[in-house]
Design a protein around this nucleic acid. Structure first.
Lengths: 180, 180
DNA sequence: TTGAAAACTGGCCGATCGGTCAGGCAAGAT
DNA sequence: ATCTTGCCTGACCGATCGGCCAGTTTTCAA
């Protein structure tokens, strides 16, 4: 029992699209680039995905699901525990999805205009509130600052190992959000 | 004595280009967009500037000059004073050039490929070292983290006043780089 | 073995991109 | 009045973009 051709091709397209988006950014990658990298034709990409944004949605899907899970779990905790939980879990997800996150970074203005990503944007906002651990506007800004710093640190994947990434995220988030 | 037409047009093109780059990003803004906003034709833009990257260079020029000045001044200080000086001055420049910085954020991968921006990239690296205040790779990463966070905070110019920006940068940079 | 459904593709479309070029037009010098 | 110089433009170019469609190849159940 081998994987159906449908799933195999779809998966390869998503895999290559992620790799290319990560290296050059969504806008700078054409459907032809994705098709060539995936070993099929541009028409095949459009056969499996209803347009370029649909490819992006597929690339972002796993991270979006895990982020939703994070937010749902944090919502059931008290404020301090929610902050602590979010710091640790966000660090872990950042490492796991460092490539995907690099894509999101560049796309924040674009994504906010696409209704199919409304859930992702809303969850990102909720996570910011959990990270801030307070309603103070300054702390909310600092939390947003932290997210941006972390997104930037995910770039250039070859530059840092996963362990170094984890350590950096942990140190930076704690310094910013849990100052002594 | 009115400004010569040459300078007036050039200045307006740069002004509108900055505004558009800031809102939509370099790649998503066409020469036609800039020309329309500046009230001239696309050919006029290309008459004054030798291609689209030259427009970008003109937009980035003032910030590039001030960054070079910052680095030169910090280079003459002891390590601790250099870090302190860089924190304060970088905060100030971030507020002054928040629009320009927003443009740079998206362009880091692109700019590094353009030789005309080598100086800007090199100065940015030097500033990272001053911010880190140490040769420890972790602190260098934290400094880079801080810069990314700050660049992200410059986005959405209408969302924060200059004073709020200044305060946020100061708090965040100190928490990250001068932890107690 | 066969036939229908699924997977896939080459070729084409209109739009838009950055960039070029020949020439129009206003202004100051002669 | 004429000429030169600098500023500006419409028209056009080749390339490339996302997307579409008619038709071919592959797959697989009956």
């Amino acid at each position: 029992m081998t994987t159906p051709a449908r799933e195999r091709t779809r998966h390869e397209i998503v895999r290559q699209a992620m790799r290319l988006f990560q290296g050059r950014g969504y806008g700078a990658v054409s459907l032809q680039d994705i098709a060539t990298a995936a070993g099929c034709s541009k028409a095949t990409v459009l056969y499996h995905f209803n347009g370029k944004p649909a490819v992006l949605a597929a690339v972002l899907e796993p991270a979006k699901a895990d982020l939703a899970e994070l937010v749902a779990a944090a919502a059931q905790l008290e404020r301090d525990e929610a902050q602590e939980y979010t710091i640790g879990r966000f660090t872990e997800l950042s490492v796991r999805y460092r490539g995907v996150i690099d894509v999101v970074q560049e796309l924040i203005p674009v994504i906010e205009e696409m209704p199919e990503f409304a859930q992702l944007v809303a969850d990102g906002l909720r996570m910011t509130e959990f990270l801030a651990g307070s309603d103070d506007p300054l702390e909310l800004s600092v939390a947003s600052f932290a997210i941006n710093g972390l997104l930037g640190a995910c770039r250039r994947p070859g530059e840092r190992t996963d362990d170094e990434m984890r350590h950096l995220c942990d140190v930076a988030l704690r310094r910013l959000l849990r100052p002594n």
